[in-house]
């Protein structure tokens, strides 16, 4: 809602001096939040590295149970969704209301594709008895700590999946707001911030893919 009232546009909160100051504050805040996200996932990466250093043979054995093709497809899907969210921001910067909504919808679609593929991967493993934690019953991997590998796998991809779901939720909210014409070239902070979040989700998958699926 960028209708000007007086000299200051109404989207600028009272404690900021200018729209620019507010925008760059929001961005810095988001980068700090991404910092915490990196440390949050970082814990899981530490568990991964420690266990891989202890049991390199386990990781080679267990990774054969993961479908490289599906992992690769999901990588490309997420890269594509990163592009579309960047395009949505660009559309906002050029005041193209329709395009904002369209690009966000494509992003939501791609994110859903990612989750559907993940769903098939998970259910396939569940059927084989590769269940998380103590429910693990699969006997195809001859290693006493095979359950730990899949615990790490489920924790990492699961936490990533939760972030994808949150991302979809955020973008649905953006679409609803964008339909009311909330975002213009002078105010599109939520789109920008959600974009940053979504790119981080992409970056984490960029690391997860070779670390989980491509071990030999």
């Amino acid at each position: 809602m960028a209708h000007a009232t007086g000299t200051v546009e109404s989207h600028v909160q009272h404690h900021f001096k200018s729209s620019d100051q507010q925008f760059s504050s929001a961005k810095l805040g988001m980068w700090l939040f991404l910092f915490t996200e990196i440390m949050f996932f970082g814990g899981l990466f530490v568990a991964y590295i420690v266990y891989r250093a202890w049991n390199p043979e386990l990781f080679t054995l267990a990774a054969t149970q993961l479908d490289t093709v599906l992992g690769a497809v999901n990588t490309v899907v997420l890269i594509g969704s990163s592009l579309t969210v960047a395009l949505a921001i660009r559309a906002a910067q050029f005041d193209k209301q329709k395009q904002i909504i369209n690009y966000l919808l494509i992003t939501i679609f791609l994110a859903t594709v990612f989750l559907v593929i993940k769903y098939f991967e998970y259910t396939h493993k569940f059927d084989m008895g590769i269940l998380p934690g103590a429910m693990y019953t699969f006997e195809g991997i001859d290693h006493p700590k095979a359950n730990v590998f899949f615990s790490i796998y489920y924790m990492m991809t699961g936490l990533h999946g939760i972030h994808v779901v949150i991302g979809i939720g955020l973008m649905v909210w953006l679409v609803l707001k964008a339909m009311k014409g909330a975002y213009t070239s002078s105010y599109y902070t939520p789109v920008e911030i959600t974009g940053l979040y979504w790119h981080l989700v992409d970056i984490i998958w960029i690391f997860l893919f070779p670390l989980m699926y491509l071990i030999d």
Binding site: L28, W31, F35, I38, G42, F45, V46, V50
Partner: peptide
């Protein structure tokens, strides 16, 4: 963007390396 945002990102990776490096 403002360079400080890049600094934030670099620091996050730095602290991750501290975490994993010392744990190893």
């Amino acid at each position: 963007d403002e360079k400080f945002n890049t600094v934030v990102l670099i620091f996050s990776f730095l602290f991750f390396f501290v975490f994993i490096g010392i744990t190893l």
